[in-house]
Design a protein around this nucleic acid. Structure first.
Lengths: 219, 219
DNA sequence: GCATCATTCAATAATTATGTTGAATGAACT
DNA sequence: AGTTCATTCAACATAATTATTGAATGATGC
C-alpha cells in the first residue's frame, strides 16, 4: 500500500514545521524576530552572516509557515507568523533543558557562576514596578528598544552601562532585562552593576515573554 | 561559525531537539509511545516499517533526549522522556494547523470524505459482488457471523480490524456491514479503513434487511 | 532612462539524513 | 554449550540540507 493515508500526510506536515525549527541559525532568527519585524539586512547584520544565507533561511521558515514577509520600499520585513511560533520554540527549549546533558553542561559552565543572581519573575517585577520600588533598565540596543519595551524602562545598552552608571536612580533595586531567558547581556549588566555597589537583579524572561504574557508594552 | 559562544552552543542543542522532531516517522513513534512504553518490535509492527529502521529512529530520539529505553528480558522498551515531549509535539502541531495550507487541505479532504460516506444499497452491492469488484467485511462478533452472513463476506470484528488490515484483499473497494442501518460499527470500520488508505464504504442496511429482501445468505 | 541597493536566485560543493540489507550482539531458554 | 530471537550495528546508496559565491531581480529615486 504505497498510498499515503491522511494521517501520515499530516505527520509529514508537522515534520516540515519541526524541521524548520531544527537549525540553530533559524532559531536565532526567531529570537530576533520575537523582538519585532526586521529586514533581511538587519537580521544579517545581527547574526553577522551573509545576507543571502539569512535570506534563504527566512524563506525556508516562510515555506514552513513560521514567518511572513512584507515588502516596504526596498526592504522586505519579516515577522513571526504569530505567537504560536514562540510557543513551539519555548516547548522545544523546555525539552532540551530537561533532557539534554549538553545543555546542562553549557548552562552550568556559563550561566551558573552567576546564579546567585536570582532572577525576578514577570509577575514580581510588575508588582514592584507599580510600587515604584525598582529601576528597570533595558540593556538591548536602541533599535530594539525603540520597537517596544517595558513601561518606564530606560534604555542603557550594555556597552554604555559603565559610563552611565551615575545616571541611574538609586531606587532600592535595579532590574535588567534583555531579549529572553538566554540572553547574556542582562547577566553581564547585573554583574557590572553589582560590582559598582548596586542592588541589581535580572528579569527571568525577556521582552517577548513579557509581551506574550499580556503585560503592557511601551513603544 | 568557528568560534561558538555559549549562546550559539545552546541554539545548537535546541536545534538538535527540533531536528529529532522533524521527521514524520519519528512523530508517529512519539504518538505511539504516548500510549505507553513499547518494544521496538511492537512499534515496527504498528508503523509497518523494518525493525532496523525503527530502531535507528528510536536511537536518534534517544540521543536528542526525547525518549529513554530500558531492557526487559529480550525486549527493549522505549518510553517518552516525559510529558514535555508531548508538549513540544502539540505546540508544533498548533503551528502547523494555523499556518500550513497543506494541513488545512488534508484535514478538509479527510473530513469531507468522511461526511459523504455514502452508503451502498443492497442492490448495488449485490451487483458489484457478482463482478468481484468488492471485498465485503462483516464487522459483527463471530457468534453473530456464524449464524448467517452475506455470501463471500469475511468476518473481521471491529476490535480486530486494525490488526488485520494486511489480510484484506486490495480489491477496488471494501464494503462493511453489520447489524442494521443504525449499527455504529460499520461507520467506525469505514472510518478506520479510510484512515489507512482503503477505498471503503458501508452498506446501507444490515444482515436482517438483506435476508428480508430475499437475497442469498451463507451460513 | 539609468543607477542604486535590498533581496532573491542559481550553481556548486560539502555535509548530514534516511532507508535498506545483512551481519553482529547479547540476553533468555533448552 | 548451543539455539533463539529482539535489537543493534555497519556498510552502502540516495536524497536532503547547508554555506558560499556571484549574478539576476525589482523597486526606488535621480
Amino acid at each position: 500500500m504505497s498510498i499515503r493515508n491522511p494521517k501520515q500526510a499530516l505527520y509529514e506536515q508537522f515534520a516540515v514545521v519541526a524541521k524548520a525549527l531544527g537549525n540553530p541559525q533559524r532559531l536565532e532568527l526567531i529570537e530576533q524576530l520575537a523582538q519585532g519585524p526586521r529586514s533581511v539586512e538587519a537580521l544579517a547584520a545581527k547574526l553577522a552572516r551573509p545576507v543571502a544565507n539569512v535570506s534563504q533561511h527566512l524563506q525556508a521558515m516562510r515555506r514552513a509557515g513560521l514567518v511572513t514577509s512584507e515588502r516596504d520600499g526596498k526592504f522586505v520585513n519579516y515577522r513571526l507568523a504569530d505567537e504560536s511560533v514562540l510557543g513551539a520554540f519555548a516547548s522545544i527549549r523546555v525539552v532540551a533543558e530537561r533532557h539534554s546533558a549538553e545543555v546542562e553542561r553549557i548552562v552550568r559552565g556559563y550561566f551558573d557562576r552567576r546564579d546567585d543572581m536570582e532572577p525576578v519573575s514577570r509577575e514580581e517585577l510588575a508588582a514592584r514596578m507599580k510600587d515604584g520600588l525598582v529601576t528597570v533598565i533595558d540593556v538591548r540596543p536602541p533599535d530594539e528598544f525603540a520597537l517596544g519595551h517595558l513601561p518606564g524602562a530606560i534604555n542603557v545598552p550594555l556597552g554604555q552601562l559603565e559610563q552611565r552608571l551615575s545616571d541611574l536612580e538609586a531606587k532600592p533595586e535595579i532590574v535588567a532585562y534583555c531579549r529572553g531567558p538566554w540572553c547574556v547581556m542582562s547577566f553581564e549588566a547585573v554583574a557590572l552593576l553589582r560590582e559598582h555597589g548596586f542592588n541589581a537583579r535580572r528579569m527571568e524572561d525577556g521582552l517577548p515573554e513579557w509581551r506574550d504574557a499580556g503585560l503592557a508594552v511601551e513603544a
